[in-house]
């Protein structure tokens, strides 16, 4: 008896299998939804508000990161000011200027998000201040 392999510890073995199944999930490759929260926050700092909101809607872990980073996910009021810079962009050969508004968190004014507007058309520009 003693030398035999531990034939049945049914609980632990099947539990282990369950756990590894759950951990691997249906994604064999690494899962972007499980990135550590500090990495997610580092990603968020490159996003303007509309994109940060989209980020927050992707899955529950990303939403938790966005809330942690101070992205206004609810209808909470924010303070808006004009950004300092006006930037000329050339998209598909056309020149347009873009102005940025900054939205400040009412409690923690150090946190703010930019939102870019096309100056002439005043269309909401989801595409932020990049040159394409």
């Amino acid at each position: 008896m003693e030398g035999a392999p531990p034939a049945s510890r049914p609980g632990s073995d099947s539990l282990c299998e369950e756990f590894s199944k759950a951990a691997l999930g249906s994604f064999p490759s690494p899962s972007w939804s499980d990135l550590p929260i500090d990495i997610l926050i580092s990603i968020l700092q490159w996003l303007e508000l509309p994109q940060a909101l989209a980020f927050a809607s992707v899955c529950t872990t990303w939403r938790a990161a966005a809330i942690g980073a101070g992205v206004p996910c609810s209808f909470a009021p924010w303070i808006m000011s004009w950004g300092k810079h006006l930037k000329e962009t050339h998209v598909h050969g056309r020149c347009s200027s873009v102005v940025t508004c900054n939205l400040y968190h009412p409690v923690d004014v150090k946190k703010y998000y930019g939102v870019s507007f096309q100056r002439v058309a005043l269309f909401f520009a989801v595409e932020p201040l990049t040159d394409g």
């Binding site: 999930g25 249906s26 994604f27 490759s29 899962s31 972007w32 939804s33 990495i39 580092s42 990603i43 968020l44 700092q45 490159w46 996003l47 994109q51 989209a54 980020f55 809607s57 992707v58 899955c59 529950t60 990303w62 989801v126 595409e127 932020p128 990049t130």
Partner: peptide, 29 residues
């Protein structure tokens, strides 16, 4: 910073659905 910037670029101009598709993320809402 550089890698996170790249990841953020991959999201720009995309809706939540499109982002899920790019990163193969399951919608758990």
């Amino acid at each position: 910073d550089v890698t996170c910037h790249k990841i953020s670029e991959m999201m720009k101009g995309k809706s939540p659905d499109q982002i899920r598709e790019v990163f193969n993320i399951k919608n758990d809402y």
